[in-house]
Computed example of a mutant assay.
Amino acid sequence: MAHTTNYFDTFIEVAEDCPTEHAQEPPIAESPSIAALHYRLIAEQPYSRTSDDVIFETYALRAGVAVDDALERALFFSMGRPCLRSSPLGKRYGWGLHHDDQGRVALVARESDEYALRAADPDIAHTRAMRSKRA
């Protein structure tokens, strides 16, 4: 059975304990962090990738696997994987994640008007990024 991390018509708001009031780009290091890879994959082409695409491509880039390897992708999703609710983008860096009706994702800065509109939109599902610390 294949698992998925995709959301549809959903807005993932920043975590309740997110330490920043303004969205920040994750720092770029010699070896890119998960946050930096998530940011790059989503910011460079908004609404072009699903959550599954972002999660698998991040894994593939870090593991040295071909991004277009269908067998490797099938094996990767043969077990459950953490979704973008666990991404550092929403937990630490102040980014909301909007998933459209086809599951494609884009970043929304916490302090933006778009964030306020998405957070108040009754026509989409709402959830939050996971907290970094227990309540």
Rank of each mutant, 00 (worst) to 15 (best):
I34R: 12
G103V: 10
V14Q: 08
D52V: 13
L117V: 08
H126F: 01
D100Y: 03
D53W: 06
I55H: 03
K91D: 02
D9E: 15
T20L: 11
E25H: 04
L84Y: 06
L75T: 15
S33F: 09
V65Y: 10
Y7P: 02
V108G: 03
D53T: 07
I12F: 06
S78A: 13
D68Y: 09
L71C: 04
P19Q: 13
E13P: 01
F11N: 03
V67M: 12
P88M: 15
V67D: 10
M130G: 03
A120H: 03
E13R: 14
P26Q: 05
C18D: 08
R49Q: 13
E57R: 03
D9R: 14
G96K: 02
F11M: 04
P26T: 05
H99T: 00
L107K: 01
F8A: 13
D69S: 09
R110D: 05
A70C: 07
T4N: 07
D69F: 08
R81Y: 03
R128V: 03
A120G: 04
D123G: 06
R134W: 09
A125R: 13
P19T: 13
A35L: 10
M79S: 15
Y39M: 01
S132F: 04
V14A: 11
R128H: 11
F11K: 03
L61D: 02
Q102D: 01
T20C: 10
P122W: 10
D121C: 07
A70F: 10
A43K: 15
T4L: 06
C18W: 08
A15R: 13
D52S: 13
P88Y: 14
A35V: 10
Q24I: 00
